[in-house]
């Protein structure tokens, strides 16, 4: 079974004004991949995610959604593509003035012709999928951080997206919740047939569910490794990647903090 390309990144450079964050990024996310964007803190993983989902314009290079050049397309075409993306932000980014049900109902009301009763049913389904049945009328401020993330995920899958983006999904979650979230991600990938892109540095998740990745390096400001994380662990020669993937155990203690 040959892999079909879903997102193709070509010679991408990211910068804030004159300050370059990363450059010369080239990689392909295939369909139904669970693609990990990893690297040390401050290397630009979240910024890269922003470039892929339409929140920041590249300084150089291009992002292709299959055959469409994302950033060269018209705003309308971009919005059309973005509609098929589901994004879970680091803090959930639920709209605080609306209940969970209203949060999930908004994209459904906006982009489908369903009646409000049908929307209510779908909302209950999405909340049940993430384990939040019964919390429809709660406001985001009334639930815990972990629950907010799950609600954010329910909203991200509201329209059954083609691509799911996760920005540090396990941040702030206890190990059990993080494992449950990993399982959920796998389930969603299998049932929705979605491609998943995750920004994370949680090693357990990376090895448990990632099947493709790139490694961004802060000092050289470019990607220094790519491929299946488990294969990288076995075969990659670069010391920075090895230290990351083995939590610094195989090397001299002196370089842990850099």
């Amino acid at each position: 079974m040959t892999a079909e390309a879903h997102i193709i990144v070509n010679e991408l450079s990211m910068a804030y004004g004159d300050f370059v964050i990363q450059q010369d990024l080239n990689f392909t996310v295939n369909k139904e991949d669970i693609f990990i964007l990893m690297g040390g803190s401050g290397c630009g993983k979240s910024t890269l995610l922003r470039h892929l989902v339409g929140l920041k314009h590249p300084a150089k290079g291009s992002v292709f959604y299959q055959d469409t050049n994302f950033w060269e397309a018209s705003e309308q075409q971009r919005n059309e593509l973005m509609r098929h993306n589901g994004i879970l932000y680091q803090s959930g980014a639920l709209w605080s003035a609306m209940t969970l049900a209203e949060n999930i109902a908004l994209p459904l009301a906006e982009y489908t012709d369903l009646s409000s009763a049908e929307i209510r049913e779908l909302v209950s389904l999405k909340l049940a999928l993430v384990g939040l049945s019964g919390f429809e009328d709660y406001y985001p401020s009334e639930i815990s951080g972990g629950m907010q993330k799950r609600a954010g995920l329910a909203r991200a899958i509201a329209l059954d997206p083609d691509i799911l983006f996760f920005d540090e999904p396990s941040a702030g979650l206890d190990p059990v919740s993080a494992k449950l979230l990993d399982d959920l991600i796998l389930e969603l990938r299998d049932s929705l047939g979605a491609t998943v892109v995750i920004v994370t540095h949680e090693l357990s998740s990376i090895f448990a569910i990632g099947n493709n990745s790139i490694f961004l390096d802060t000092d050289s400001k470019t990607m220094i490794a790519s491929g299946d994380p488990k294969i990288l662990l076995k075969e990659c020669e670069d010391s920075r990647v090895r230290q990351f993937l083995t939590r610094g155990e195989k090397n001299n203690r002196t370089e842990i903090y850099s």
Binding site: G54, N79, M82, I87, Y89, A93, E110
Partner: peptide
């Protein structure tokens, strides 16, 4: 809180 970004990416 990134809520405005969430609007943007939802089109």
């Amino acid at each position: 809180n990134e809520e405005i970004n969430a609007f943007k990416t939802m089109g």
